[in-house]
């Protein structure tokens, strides 16, 4: 009786395992050759004067030429994310437009956003994006470096 119950539990666990997709592995993508159009992006007040409405947004724009080395994952289905490391103080928001090879989107400091889903076709993915950066200017007290990186998820 006890053997039967154990076998039933084991079968159940195996069935559950078969239903769950295998955990995807995540890797940082080598983006050697990626460069921004300017080393420092000046953040400007959206409204020079705070005014009665009190708009304290600062914004800046930078163009980035991307070159992602995907040679390890050619012909494999994958998801690619653009991540922004946590920023100092206020969460900064980055929104980007693309030429169509990657998806446009928005990311906040400390999070990531899907920019590609599908089979990896080529060893290198080159794309030009325009990054629009916004933040509460009251909370951006000093110059800082925003760390962007790409991650790829592939099934083992």
């Amino acid at each position: 009786m006890r053997v039967q119950r154990t076998l039933a539990m084991l079968a159940g666990l195996l069935a559950l395992g078969a239903m769950l997709p295998a955990a995807a592995a995540t890797y940082r993508i080598d983006d050697t050759g990626t460069f921004a159009s300017q080393p420092v992006t000046p953040m400007r007040w959206r409204q020079l004067a705070p005014g009665r409405a009190g708009d304290h947004t600062v914004e800046g724009r930078v163009q980035v030429q991307l070159r992602l080395n995907l040679s390890q994952w050619v012909s494999r289905p994958a998801r690619i994310y653009l991540s922004l490391a946590p920023t100092d103080g206020e969460q900064l928001v980055a929104t980007w437009r693309t030429q169509g090879r990657l998806l446009p989107g928005t990311v906040r400091g400390g999070s990531r956003t899907l920019v590609y889903e599908g089979v990896v076709r080529d060893s290198f993915l080159q794309e030009s994006i325009v990054l629009d950066l916004t933040a509460d200017g009251r909370k951006v007290e000093h110059a800082q470096s925003l760390q962007f990186f790409f991650e790829i998820e592939v099934s083992p």
Binding site: G33, W45, A49, V140, L146, Q147
Partner: peptide, 29 residues
């Protein structure tokens, strides 16, 4: 490389005072 960096600056400081007549060009603030 496994990531890229975008440097940003803080917004500029500014001070404005108008007493009586002033000058604005291109509209209002």
């Amino acid at each position: 490389a496994h990531g890229f960096t975008v440097g940003i600056t803080a917004g500029q400081r500014a001070l404005f005072l108008q007493v009586g007549v002033g000058t604005m060009s291109g509209g209002f603030f």
